[in-house]
Design a protein around this nucleic acid. Structure first.
Length: 309
DNA sequence: AAGACTCTCAACCGCCGATGT
DNA sequence: AACATCGGCGGTTGAGAGTCT
């Protein structure tokens, strides 16, 4: 019983792929399609197991793969979906066109998880680690909502899979082609789930990037909640006297860490009515990519194609 | 300059469910 | 029903690159 490893055959190569191997695999699939992965290596003249070929194709050679830095929108999507689905990378990947599950998993493990942890958010539960931080901390209602959403999403995915099977959709159909509407409840309340306030924090941190002049360091938000977050060298300096800043809604001002230095990431509490005033204070008023959380169901509608749960 | 340390990500491993015989 | 095979998934590893001291 049990399945023997597919690379058990002697002489099969392991490790990094050479350009020649890539070319062989690419040429074969372009001409014949992949068909049976098991049989492919022999036909393509490769000393690899089928699994290795499949992985190489899916994660690297496929022409519709987008490589490089993840956009802010992609980061938000990953976090939103991870909060709902957990480590179901393939499910998450279906909502990120041109990204592979492996890439998303790597990005989560090497970047997003660490960043959430630094922000004091548990990357597993997506909740603030201590009560001192978030405004939605420890609310049992939030936990219940999250649980509800997870259950609903699970059921939805199952229904989706069933629909796909029943309709015998061809694999080439784009998975993101509005297939959610097929199983969306018809009379559900269009309310933003309160449990995902962690996403508001993220939205604020990653989408409110701006630059301002430290020399004019009378900068305070209208509510005096300028806030040091962390040191970083990842953001480019626009000038020697500038720092990179970030907006954030969920954290208060910690004056003990002031003054800020070049390279600091700052977070500012703000309300939508305060943004114009904040923008005036920036020497490089970069565009603020706001997410309108006040319009009910908007983000969910955009992401899932229907309005709320 | 060089060694130590950290980070990134491509690739592997082992398990699971679906399907075929 | 039992077993074999396959594709697919998530967890993990390790080589190479980058950074620090």
């Amino acid at each position: 019983m049990g399945r023997s490893p597919c690379c058990e055959k002697v002489g099969l190569k392991k490790g990094p792929w050479t350009p020649e191997e890539d070319q062989k695999l690419l040429a074969y699939i372009e001409q014949h399609g992949h068909g049976s992965w098991r049989a492919l290596p022999l036909k393509a003249g490769l000393q690899r197991c089928g699994k290795s070929c499949r992985l190489r194709w899916i994660n690297y050679l496929r022409p519709d793969i987008k490589r490089g830095k993840f956009s802010l929108q992609e980061e938000q999507t990953i976090i939103q979906l991870h909060a709902l689905l957990g480590n179901r990378w393939s499910a998450i990947a279906t909502h990120l066109p041109k990204r592979t599950d492996n890439e998303i998993k790597n990005y989560w493990n090497t970047h997003l998880k660490k960043r959430l942890t630094k922000m004091g958010i548990d990357p597993v539960t997506h909740k603030p680690k201590t009560d001192a931080l978030g405004s939605t901390t420890g609310n049992p209602k939030d936990a219940a909502n999250l649980s509800h959403m997870a259950q609903w999403e699970s059921a939805r995915l199952e229904a989706e899979a069933r629909l796909v099977r029943e309709s015998k959709l061809v694999p080439s159909n784009p998975p993101q082609s509005n297939h959610f509407t097929a199983v969306a409840p018809s009379s559900t309340p269009a309310t933003r789930p309160q449990c995902l306030d962690v996403l508001k924090a993220w939205q604020g941190v990653v989408c409110g990037l701006f630059t301002f002049n430290v020399d004019n360091n009378n900068l305070q938000s209208p509510t005096s909640t300028l806030n040091f977050m962390e040191n970083t060298t990842t953001l480019p300096m626009s000038s020697s006297s500038s720092v990179n800043g970030m907006f954030n809604e969920n954290f208060g001002w910690n004056s003990s860490i002031n003054p800020c230095e070049s390279g600091d990431i700052l977070k500012v509490e703000y309300g939508s009515d305060q943004i114009p005033e904040l923008k005036e204070r920036l020497d490089h008023p970069l565009e603020l990519h706001e997410m309108d959380y006040s319009s009910e169901g908007t983000w969910f509608q955009e992401l899932f194609g229907f309005n709320g749960l």
